[in-house]
Design a protein around this nucleic acid. Sequence first.
DNA 1: GAATAGATCCGC
DNA 2: CGGATCTATTCA
Length: 170
Amino acid sequence: MNTNRLKKEFFSRPPVSVAQELLGATLVFDEKKGIITEMEAYGGLDDPASHAYRGETPRSKIMFGPAGFSYVYLIYGMHHCLNIVTGAEGEGSAVLIRGLYDPEADVHYDGPGKLTKYLGITRADNGVDVTTGKNFFVLPRAQEIAFDATPRIGIREGLDKLWRFVVKDM
DNA sequence: GAATAGATCCGC
DNA sequence: CGGATCTATTCA
């Protein structure tokens, strides 16, 4: 059931905390679901690697809204990336979901483009409130999870921050 | 308007 | 290591 889903308060915190605590959580989208195994945190105007770095644009608009909304964008002309907005409204921070494990099929989706393809997420799913969405929500993890912290992938700036978090032994 | 780089993935 | 593929943002 989704009565246990993660609420507004969970996402309305700094992206690093949200990213770390989403490891091991269960992402549900329509009839599919998976356990989150890899996350990245992105800041707002203070993070040169973030889409929100240069302020609000038509694309980054959703990032500056309230926490808990999905931010889906197309990258390299062919892959969709799924984020969830974090922090306070106007902050512009978000977390990127990079890895998913499907327990039923015992399949690991390594990479943001792969898991959105598996779930069937597209830009049509941009701007959905995951704390109220009927077929789009996140269930909290059952227990603490051990993880490693590394620089984020595919960016040119902000490499000093260890804001990529990967579940150990998976 | 035109140019460019991009939070990726796959195949050679 | 390079190609695919397209579009949001930037620059003239």
